[in-house]
Simulated scan of single mutants.
Amino acid sequence: MTLVKFNPDKLNNRSLLPGFNDVFDSIFNDTFFSDRMTSRVPAANISESEDHFHIELAAPGLKKEDFKINLDRNVLNISVESQNEQNNTQKNYSKREYSYSSWVRSFTLPESANAEQIEAAYTDGILIVDIAKREEAKAVRRQIEIK
């Protein structure tokens, strides 16, 4: 027996078959489908300091060797080909949300970025990429004396 969620508030939706759309809503709004429809790439935080741009990617369960970072013209590509799943085959998961098999995140660098000075580190499930700014792009700050 299958249970189908029914929303009585949608009776006035002018459908030829009331309740028909509710069947599809209950199927596609279920977590089984919505989990698979969402994008499976890590979330990113992008920030800027006085002399660097910073990219942080939340990618738990990986090793630093799993990442490939390359620069093609002014596009920084961060990718993971496939996660080693030999330890996971022995487990029966009831829900699995961070099984990245492969993904790519691309970031277009601004002209003020120095492509020669990019550093990356992976600590505690966070990949941190620091991109230095060009000298001419750094904010010049000084105290102005009032006469």
Results as ranks from 00 to 15, higher is better:
Val104Ser: 11
Asn7Trp: 01
Asn77Gly: 03
Glu48Trp: 05
Lys5Ile: 05
Arg96Met: 14
Asn114Thr: 06
Gln143Lys: 15
Phe6Tyr: 07
Val129Met: 01
Phe67Asp: 03
Lys68Glu: 13
Glu48Leu: 12
Thr123Val: 14
Ala44Leu: 12
Ile69Tyr: 09
Arg134Glu: 01
Asn45Tyr: 04
Ala43His: 09
Pro18Ala: 06
Ile69Ala: 08
Asp25Glu: 09
Gln117Pro: 00
Ile27Ser: 02
Asp22Ile: 06
Arg73Trp: 09
Thr108Leu: 04
Lys5His: 10
Arg73Gln: 15
Ser47Arg: 02
Ser106Ile: 04
Glu135Leu: 10
Val104Asn: 11
Glu56Gln: 14
Glu97Ile: 11
Asn21Met: 11
Ala121Asp: 13
Ala113Asp: 00
Ser26Gly: 15
Asn7Arg: 12
Ile128Tyr: 12
Glu97Trp: 02
Asn74Gln: 14
Ile69Thr: 07
Val104Glu: 12
Arg36Phe: 14
Phe33Glu: 07
Glu56Val: 03
Arg40Ile: 07
Tyr93Leu: 09
Leu127Phe: 02
Val129Leu: 15
Val129Ser: 08
Tyr122Leu: 01
Leu17Phe: 15
Ile118Trp: 00
Val104Ile: 15
Ile128Gly: 09
Ala139Glu: 09
Ala44Glu: 12
Leu11Tyr: 11
His54Gly: 02
Met37Ala: 04
Ile126Met: 08
Ala115Asn: 14
Ala139Asn: 13
Gln143Gly: 10
Ala115Arg: 13
Asp66Trp: 06
Asn74Val: 04
Asp130His: 04
Thr31Val: 11
Ile128Thr: 06
Ile146Cys: 03
Asn74Leu: 07
Asp72Ser: 13
Thr89Leu: 13
Asn114Gly: 02
Met1Val: 07
Pro42Gly: 06
Glu111Ile: 02
Glu116Lys: 14
Tyr98Glu: 01
Tyr122Gly: 04
Lys138Ala: 06
Glu135Tyr: 07
Arg105Glu: 14
Gly125Asp: 01
Leu16Met: 10
